[in-house]
Design a protein around this nucleic acid. Structure first.
Lengths: 296, 296
DNA sequence: AGTATCGATAACCTGACGTTATGGATGTCG
DNA sequence: CGACATCCATAACGTCAGGTTATCGATACT
């Protein structure tokens, strides 16, 4: 009987959450979709994996057996995937590095240049990811490392080297009434509609609407943006405002957008990030050294 | 990046065969379907896994890396699946045994009765499989053991205990001209249309059209049958004839079907079969002992 | 009784993935 | 050199798998 690792991850989420509804939220699926997945897994395995009740889903003995055996399967696949990626990188002499928006700002090019001095016959392929994947291809294994803004989903599975920290500011349409001010406090922005990242971005999305500074009040989402382009457009159109790193005023300057200082929100850190499961060696180690030499 | 083990098995088949076309045949898929699968795997892994040429598919370094890592993944999943099945059997006190057609003939019930004496609080659930799955649920892991006719696909992965051997006869419509004879030679049947098992049955299908006794001549297929019912109907309707175990004359007697002796084809063996990867213990071991006591 | 929460089911829609048919490239043979 | 064979890739098409929203039944709580 074949299985998709996606089904196994769904099973694991249900087993950990003890609830279909909560697991579905965590997986960014609807509850019926997850119900079907679990039923499908049960039917194909020929075993009832959960005892259903009003209180949720309690694993059966068979369910416990699967939960116990699951790490071996997922880790084996993860290792296989990394082995493929490693062989491909060696064969092509390309290190793939994911990034969002402006990567590591002005440090990006010097880091790459430094790496190139160290490894003249290698090259770095930069891959931009959408905000729907704030881990910039690291979780999926498409890239070897990434320039990322903290926090991002599943951060505990990765090692990171902080490169720079910068304050956050607020971006709004140039004609917005608050744009007449040089500096704002975050409480003044609580009722404004915000441009948010997609739901699947999880903690990353929460961070960029400063959910932790809202005292439990839900954010009003004016629009959802996946890329800098649509984000800029939505802001300029007045669909909402957004928190942004201070560097955005340099990298994304436009006459129809005003960037203003804001107090009451934590600064933003950019880090070079790589999987903990991959002890750095060879080219990856060199990239990390290059970045460390230029870190704040 | 998630993956379905089915894709991994497809990859393995291509890597082993070194040819998409031959691997597609082995997997009972069309070649374009398999092309798509491999392309999908390559795209999602972000690596070219094969070098394509007129001569076939040669694995790249990345492809070799995946081939090397693959057994760990598939074995881990196999172990997980068996752990689930084992926990389920223990919890429900049910041993699942697959079978085709008449199982182990008259020995079936005595074996089960003997097992019950040994394990009074256990029970055996018999599951009939179609001829599209001549391994009767063993390969897919749906059952713990099976009464099977040799040969069956992937037989080398299983241990077997031969229970009985019986000659094969030929079944045909009662009004067939050859039915007037008591005994026939297989060469006399070479031009007759045969009722065959589905293509996915592989070696099992070949065995029951006696491909090995045809000297390379292809069999003419009059109809395909998946179950004894449609097989009997097709024979009675004159769509074709078929080889059958001698016991079929007892278990599947009908006034419109004649069973006749045939020389020149090997006899048929029924065995109790279980996975080599599962050293028999507990209830499975008891079932094997019960069957051994009644074997020829 | 009203409300909240849980998982299950129904209806619906989209896209994934299979098939057959065909094509391009290369090699072999008469 | 032309005909044929063989390989993998691509196109067109059809089916159904798997997602969604809406709703339901069961239970618990106030």
């Amino acid at each position: 009987m074949d299985v998709d690792t996606r089904l196994l991850r769904s099973f694991r989420a249900v087993a950990e959450e003890g609830s279909l509804t909560r697991a579905a939220q965590r997986l960014y699926l609807s509850q019926p979709a997850l119900t079907k997945q679990i039923r499908q897994l049960e039917e194909r395995l020929g075993a009832r994996l959960f005892q259903r009740s009003k209180h949720g889903m309690a694993p059966t003995a068979a369910g416990e057996a699967l939960a116990a055996a699951l790490p071996s399967v997922l880790d084996a696949w993860d290792a296989a995937r990394r082995a493929v990626r490693g062989a491909e990188a060696e064969a092509s002499r390309v290190l793939r590095v994911g990034f969002l928006a402006s990567a590591a700002n002005e440090k990006t090019q010097p880091i790459i240049a430094r790496f190139r001095e160290c490894r003249p016959d290698w090259r770095i392929e930069l891959r931009q990811a959408s905000w729907g994947d704030p881990a910039a291809g690291l979780v999926s294994g498409e890239v070897d490392a990434a320039f990322m803004r903290l926090p991002f989903p599943r951060q505990d599975e990765f090692a990171s080297l902080a490169l720079l920290t910068e304050p956050r500011c607020v971006a709004m349409a140039a004609g917005h009434p608050l744009a007449r001010r040089e500096s704002l406090r975050f409480e003044e922005l609580l009722d404004e509609p915000f441009i948010a990242a997609p739901g699947a971005a999880g903690a990353f999305r929460d961070h960029w609407v400063a959910a932790d500074a809202r005292g439990g009040r839900p954010v009003k989402v004016g629009a959802v943006a996946e890329h800098p382009d649509d984000w800029l457009t939505a802001i300029a159109n007045g669909d909402g405002i957004a928190l942004a790193p201070a560097s955005a005023a340099r990298y994304y300057a436009r006459p129809d957008i005003a960037y203003r200082e804001v107090e009451g929100v934590a600064p933003s850190t950019v880090a070079l990030v790589w999987p903990k499961a991959v002890p750095p060696s060879g080219p990856l180690s060199d990239l990390i050294a290059a970045a460390a030499a230029l870190a704040d």
